[in-house]
Design a protein around this nucleic acid. Structure first.
Lengths: 340, 340
DNA sequence: TTGAAAGCGTTACCAA
DNA sequence: TTGGTAACGCTTTCAA
């Protein structure tokens, strides 16, 4: 059913309508001045021919591709999906279109994607996190277009930032555990190789315990980030084996927290009576699990909205909008898994 | 930090190297014949200038954009993420790059995306499902490039198909319930407006019950697809209210099944002793829930792999590869939530 | 309100 | 192995 003949061009539409191709071009951009009548005739002819404008050509000519490159770690994550939703909605009224890629939490893959995306001449680039390979950093710095880093507060920002402190977020949970009277507190996360935000959370966890003069060594790191429910369960088994006296465990994500909790339950322990559990990310799962899991909400959608707002203003001003930092404040949501 | 001067072009690199821009062009495509020595000089000059090839221009000139448009319903769904992974890996060795969009299960949004993507002159288009708006169907038929519909078995395929029968998959679950001795069987899904694959599952459910001479009216439809865990919980509350004698419930997805199950547990019921539950999609959650949830595995990743295989062969042959149907067989995974 | 001409940055094609 | 020239399909710019 696939037609092989080449696609019609503006000239074809112009010829059929009896106007110049310039007029066709104008008719397809709403702003231009074309008489309503000719515009209608042009539209009709275009429909008849099955004409579809070629943004490859218009992008080359106008130097505006309409692309915004977005790089996120995963396309199977409710938090990043929320951020993307905020972005998508915030850009709906513009001519901008997302060019989306995912890295699987691998900065080397991020570098590859950024390089590929740069060839597409995006009008802006949005990346997740503040840790990049040296080459990737160079790409971003020399991109010649606005760059936003989100989901983190990089020490040395490239351009604009919308994010939060993962370390501070982890502290929230530690302090909550402490207030509940827990003293032997552990952390479950992935191996340290990849997920830099996860590492920041662990670092925040350790720092918070040290400040409280508590033992910060009850840490289990296993599984390739993002760690799964299953990884969380396995890690909890290990945690209970090494430190049977553990009172509370913070997990790097709600998913691993759920896995960890079910592992406790399978082992016949009661949550939170025998052990308290905390997660991260405010997933639906944390709310519906029995008991519901205490978690941290990072306002993922708001991050996307903020980035979109910034983008619109920067691209409107046509120039260097202020490269500032929008700081998001994570919130602790206390639930049954950690309150007694 | 954003440089404003315009990006260097091939001519700039050519001038700096002392060759023609044609030679630079060749040097950047591995196949072409350029002496190793000049190629190295060119690469060096390019690095120095921070030159990045412009695929907008090369796409226009070569008529190969390197894009494969992919439209999926959601970017927060483990199943579609698996399919995408299969696709991504299957295309890694090629020059192809995914141009990804999501519809939120809205065929009108699918139409919008397909139209936008067509302007980017993709070399192929992959959509999810076999139900499209009339206009969208027309776009796809006239696209002039290979089209694949996946995750479904459309009655009237546009081109290539890699999918499975959602109705038949639902039948698997009904038959399993029946073999376990259940007779009063219900279905929980979203409202019927959007998710066509969910609707197919419900239709398969009803048909299977009718064939078994059982009452097929115990159906709760609520929530905008994709229905959430919370929707599943609410639906179960309604189900238990209307049909307190219900013995087994099939849910349109594992997420709603989990929500439904927790609702039963909150109501003090035991699963599966008091009520059996089945889901769909083989999520990690179904395996880790207590009890583990019986589900249906649709080989999501294999779907992506098959599409990639087809794509490689079609684009290699340069021509109309066979537009056939690759049929996937869903598998039932029996677990504690439905076996007694 | 419309049109003609000159690019945009690359590659196809033909020559050397 | 290299280079010159003419597209690719559109928009910018200047004129009418």
């Amino acid at each position: 059913m696939r037609k092989s003949g080449k696609a019609p061009t503006m000239s074809d539409v112009a010829r059929l309508t009896g106007v110049s191709s310039m007029t066709v071009s104008r008719a397809f951009r709403d702003d231009a001045s074309v008489s309503k009548e000719t515009r209608d005739r042009i539209r009709k002819a275009a429909d008849k021919l099955g004409y579809v404008i070629d943004s490859t050509a218009s992008g080359l000519s106008s130097r505006r591709t309409g692309f915004v490159a977005v790089v996120i770690p995963s396309i199977n994550n409710a938090n990043f999906a929320d951020t993307l939703r905020g972005l998508t909605e915030g850009l709906r009224s513009t001519h901008l279109q997302l060019l989306l890629g995912y890295t699987d939490y691998d900065v080397k893959e991020e570098e590859r994607l950024v390089e590929l995306f740069l060839r597409r001449r995006p009008e802006a680039i949005i990346v997740t996190g503040g840790s990049h390979t040296r080459r990737c950093r160079k790409f971003l710095k020399n991109a010649g277009v606005p760059v936003a880093e989100m989901w983190d507060l990089p020490a040395d920002p490239i351009d604009h930032v919308v994010g939060f402190s993962n370390a501070a977020a982890a502290e929230l949970m530690v302090h909550h555990f402490h207030e509940q009277g827990f003293r032997r507190i552990g952390f479950i996360g992935g191996d340290t190789s990849r997920d830099t935000r996860g590492n920041d959370r662990r670092a925040g966890f350790v720092a918070a315990l040290e400040k409280l003069d508590l033992d910060p060594t009850r840490v289990v790191a296993r599984g390739i980030p993002p760690i799964t429910m299953r990884d969380g369960a396995k890690a909890m088994r290990q945690m209970l084996g090494e430190w049977p006296d553990i009172e509370a465990v913070m997990c790097v994500s709600d998913l691993s927290a759920f896995g960890a909790m079910t592992e406790c339950q399978r082992a016949g322990m009661r949550v939170p009576d025998d052990i308290a559990i905390g997660g991260f990310g405010s997933y639906d799962l944390a709310e519906l699990a029995i008991p519901a899991i205490t978690t941290i909400d990072v306002a993922a959608r708001a991050i996307g909205t903020h980035v979109a707002d910034w983008l619109r203003s920067v691209l409107a001003e046509g120039q260097s909008g202020t490269a500032d930092v929008t700081r998001i404040e994570p919130k602790l949501l206390v639930r049954g898994s950690s309150s007694r």
